[in-house]
Design a protein around this nucleic acid. Structure first.
Lengths: 306, 306
DNA sequence: GTCTATAAAGAGATAGAC
DNA sequence: GTCTATCTCTTTATAGAC
């Protein structure tokens, strides 16, 4: 019977190999696309035999789902600092831009999470707890909780003077109990819903609007932009940032329309941001992973022998 | 040397077999998903040998692209009658609803065209000419062309009285030359752009808005709704029609700002879709194809042997 | 725990007989 | 045109030696 330290060392080693497997898998997915992910390739990459992988993961699917949870946690992590933005509309815009930036910066990860198989999406949204507990989720849950109190008040201090608000703000916010442990995959949703409640309280969103519906439609817009960008060769014809900007302005009622509905800067100077428009740069985004862009993932094997 | 009639008969027979191949392929894709489409399965379905398929299609990819072009033409066909709607905002709403309905009614076809491989999307948008020429495209091109003249005037007769319009309407419409033969895949885009120009002329869209950008962002919203609906297990929590309604109202500026509009019954009783929520029903959609819904397409082979 | 070896299945595509 | 037969390659997953 070995001492406790030996057991721990073995456990650490097992965990380490598990991480190496996931690292290799992630690299393959990023470079060649998810379709090219195979047990053999992973085994080759980590210089183990394929059979060893099955001691850590029951199947290729389990590896894929672990990658999904990881990637989703990474996405959530980019939201954390943005949840502190005082103005709810600006907060939502920043979240939207970060969402699109993530999808553009990590196309294959985004594909795997949101465009491949429903079970993968489910693994990411529901199973992000496991991967996210590794550090991200704690911080996020803290932010979400803090948002219920502190962020709300700072937002009021900044915004409340604009319109007749404050009446419904205090009483109705607890409509979203925001149990952070309940479903960590919904953390992003909670951030959005809170911002929407503030927006509504400030009179900048129709009081009759169902915030849950608005949030889903808003999400769909962002997802559509990312997904078309990844799949459709002719999208977008205008710079991506321009399309995102129009979408955000439309959803948040800040568009320079003939009549602004909520509260907007009446008219803008030029036509659009045709001049600058850095387009796909997104230097604001995440520099963690080694440039997932550029390589055609090749869902199809294409020609190999001739 | 055979007579000309014999050559024609042979050509017809060849075409007929080509159609049978595509029919079988379409059925497989609809029932088992695109990933399950293989030359052998097609051959089995039509009771020919796999080698025969290669006399009609150079590769599996070519079959897939033909299916894409077909499906896209089918989608365009559902737009044709809607292009006659006089009010441009209502026309765009109807187009949007038809788009979503198509995606929900033909999930695997939609996936193949817009969510799988960029080359497939390209084949649909650019190569729809070939498949569409079979009858759909002619009608569509006619509608598009007629739209430049007739539909525009009916729209003016119905709408123009609303706001101060008419000044820019006549002079600027030819901004979109609408060459129907040029790129038939863009026919849908042209329909949208025309509606947007009318909207702008009527003062119901900001004069500074770039209609091309608006159109792409609008498309992205619709695509996002369909794509999430097909991939994300928890989307939507509210009935799909409600989400679509909010999106359309937001984009077309018909949202309440205090008063509830067409859809969205102000407040809901429960939290989520616990109570009613028919969700995926959509009986309004197309009944042409044999119920592509319901069966899990299984991108992955999953368990087969044990 | 890790390996070698292999089973079992399936894919796309082609050569050559008829 | 069509078929038989096959080549080549890939995959997931497991059995059993060490």
């Amino acid at each position: 019977m070995p001492g406790m330290g030996i057991v721990e060392r073995k456990s650490r080693q097992k965990q380490a190999l598990r991480e190496r497997i996931l690292d290799a898998a992630r690299r393959i997915v990023m470079r060649e696309g998810f379709a090219a992910l195979s047990m053999r390739k992973i085994a080759d990459a980590i210089e183990y035999s394929p059979a060893t992988l099955y001691l850590h993961f029951a199947s290729r699917d389990e590896i894929a789902q672990a990658l999904c949870a990881e990637g989703y946690a990474q996405l959530l992590a980019t939201f954390v600092p943005l949840a502190q933005i005082a103005d709810p509309a600006e907060r939502l815009k920043a979240l939207g831009r970060a969402y699109v930036a993530f999808g553009v910066a990590h196309p294959e990860t985004y594909r795997l999470i949101f465009m491949e198989d429903p079970s993968y999406t489910g693994a990411a949204l529901g199973g992000a707890a496991g991967a996210a507990r590794k550090g991200v989720d704690g911080a996020l849950a803290a932010v979400v909780d803090a948002g219920a109190g502190a962020a709300n008040e700072t937002a009021e201090a900044t915004v409340a003077g604009t319109a007749a608000a404050g009446t419904t703000a205090s009483g109705k916010v607890n409509l979203a109990p925001a149990k952070p442990d309940d479903d960590p995959g919904d953390a992003a949703l909670h951030i959005m819903l809170r911002a929407l409640e503030e927006l509504k309280a400030a009179g900048r969103l129709s009081a009759s609007m169902d915030v849950a519906v608005w949030a889903e439609a808003f999400w769909a817009t962002l997802h559509g932009i990312v997904a078309l960008n990844l799949t459709c060769p002719v999208f977008p014809s205008a710079p991506l940032d321009t399309v995102v900007g129009v979408a955000l302005d439309t959803w948040l009622g800040t568009q320079p329309a003939g009549q602004p509905q909520g509260a907007a800067k009446s008219t803008r100077a030029g036509k659009k941001k045709s001049a600058e428009a850095p387009a796909q740069s997104h230097s604001e985004a995440h520099a963690e992973s080694p440039a997932e862009t550029g390589v055609k993932p090749a869902t199809k094997p294409k020609a190999a022998s001739a």
